[in-house]
Design a protein around this nucleic acid. Structure first.
Length: 443
DNA sequence: CATCGATGTCATTTT
DNA sequence: GCAAAATGACATCGA
């Protein structure tokens, strides 16, 4: 059964019961998001082709957007701008958007509040203004940084140069437009057996775009996110380039991470490209977790022992949807590892059986040779025995000194080793023509 | 365009 | 009887 289309997922999501213990602002944020989605669809907004969007307006608007509201980012990136600030993740550690006033979570082109750096949604802010910054050059950028407090920290960040490399990928993704997004979506619909969508999946399909996911994920897992994140943005370019170029375009730590990842798993470098897809599919659950605001890493969800896992769950107030997603993530993660181990065992079993088969074949060949040899030896021994028999029989004489006829007598050996001369046939009613030879006749 | 290998996922079975 | 692991089957992707 094919995966549910986004519309169905949205419908189902809306039909879901109110999550237990969900806070008002969070719920309101989701409703606001659904409202945004419905407005976009009803008005037939072509977000990806709307090039005439006012950058300044977006800037101001996005500066107040919470990470959960990310449509503006798509527009901006599709404008061909070069988002450069998706990396200032360490600066803004807030993940949960609940701290942002709910009224700021709605996109309203008519009433855009002035930018408030205290909100610190700089991930979007910086990504949006990165293009003019890049065009202005370092001097202008610094000047702007002095004017804008929220940017100063970033512009002075030594990571900026490094991060610009990421922008190339992001820009490439942006320039690819909807096709790039679709490619990613296609990648996410990995298995046609995904029968039941969770809330997170619905949210992911409907409303989660690159920027938000990058930002939220990076805020949650700043150390682990880079390879997948950057490859995610690099996808269109990567597909058109040799693997060496792919790696060369990635920031050093990213290519190093990918290479080390490949090395750690004994993956030839040439296979790393395929593993990049694996990385992306692996991150699908992570994105779902982000979408559902799971407050801990999927790595822990999957790898922790049962007791530690339950202890971890008990530390957080999680609603049913979150718990369901966590259980799914844990089940999928465990099963993924189990499948990998299972395949590994299967391959090892096949190798072992092939080895065993070859060994048995060799042993069979050897046994056949031995058999031939033994049969030959038996033949020779039989020949010798016959010769010896004839010699012995020829030496036997009766009382009159005549030799026995081999057609009438034969030599027989008993269990105790005694040898008798036995007549081969006897006539009815007559006695044996000759008495059996005693041991004295035995050779 | 068909094929194959690798992988993730789900359903089912086994432990 | 239940949970976790193991496994078969299927879909997808890239080469």
């Amino acid at each position: 059964m094919p995966p549910c289309p986004p519309q169905q997922g949205r419908t189902r999501t809306m039909l879901l019961p109110q999550p237990v213990g969900e806070s008002g602002p969070t719920r309101e944020m989701e409703l606001a998001w659904q409202e945004i989605m419905s407005i976009s669809e009803l008005q037939g907004l072509d977000m990806q082709n709307e090039n005439s969007y006012d950058t300044a307006a977006v800037y101001c608007n996005m500066s107040h957007m919470v990470p959960g509201s990310s449509y503006g980012l798509s527009q901006t990136t599709l404008d061909g701008t070069l988002p450069s600030c998706s990396q200032n993740l360490s600066i803004f550690n807030r993940h949960h958007p609940e701290v942002v006033p709910p009224e700021c979570q709605r996109i309203s082109a008519a009433a855009i509040p002035p930018m408030d750096p205290n909100y610190g949604s700089a991930t979007y802010t910086c990504m949006l203004i990165s293009s003019p910054l890049n065009q202005m050059g370092p001097t202008s950028m610094n000047q702007m940084g002095t004017k804008n407090g929220s940017m100063s920290g970033l512009l002075n960040d030594p990571m900026v140069d490094q991060l610009n490399l990421m922008d190339i990928g992001i820009a490439a993704d942006s320039l690819m437009g909807s096709q790039a997004c679709k490619t990613q979506e296609d990648l996410e619909s990995d298995s046609g057996l995904s029968l039941n969508y969770s809330d997170a999946e619905s949210m992911e399909m409907e409303s989660i775009d690159h920027g938000r996911l990058c930002a939220e994920y990076s805020e949650l897992y700043p150390m682990d996110y880079h390879p997948a994140q950057q490859h995610y943005h690099m996808l269109p370019s990567l597909q058109e380039m040799p693997i060496t170029q792919n790696y060369s375009m990635l920031p050093p730590e990213t290519s190093q991470a990918l290479n080390s990842h490949a090395c750690a798993r004994n993956i030839p470098v040439g296979k790393a490209k395929q593993y990049s897809r694996i990385e992306m599919t692996c991150n699908r659950d992570e994105r779902r977790a982000v979408a559902m605001k799971i407050p801990f890493a999927t790595e822990n969800i999957v790898n922790l022992p049962v007791d530690d896992f339950n202890e971890l769950l008990s530390k957080f107030q999680l609603n049913e949807a979150q718990l369901a997603l966590i259980r799914d993530i844990r089940r999928r993660g465990k099963n993924k590892v189990a499948a990998q181990n299972c395949r590994k065992r299967k391959l090892e079993t096949i190798l072992y059986l092939e080895k065993d088969l070859n060994k048995l074949r060799d042993e069979r060949e050897k046994l056949l040779l031995d058999r031939c040899s033994f049969e030959k030896t038996i033949c020779q021994m039989n020949q010798k025995l016959n010769d010896l028999y004839r010699d012995v029989f020829r030496m036997l004489k009766d009382k009159e000194g005549h030799p026995y006829s081999s057609e009438e007598f034969s030599l027989q050996q008993t269990v105790d080793g005694s040898i008798f001369l036995v007549p081969l046939k006897r006539e009815n009613g007559t006695e044996w023509p000759h008495a059996p030879v005693d041991n004295s006749d035995c050779c």
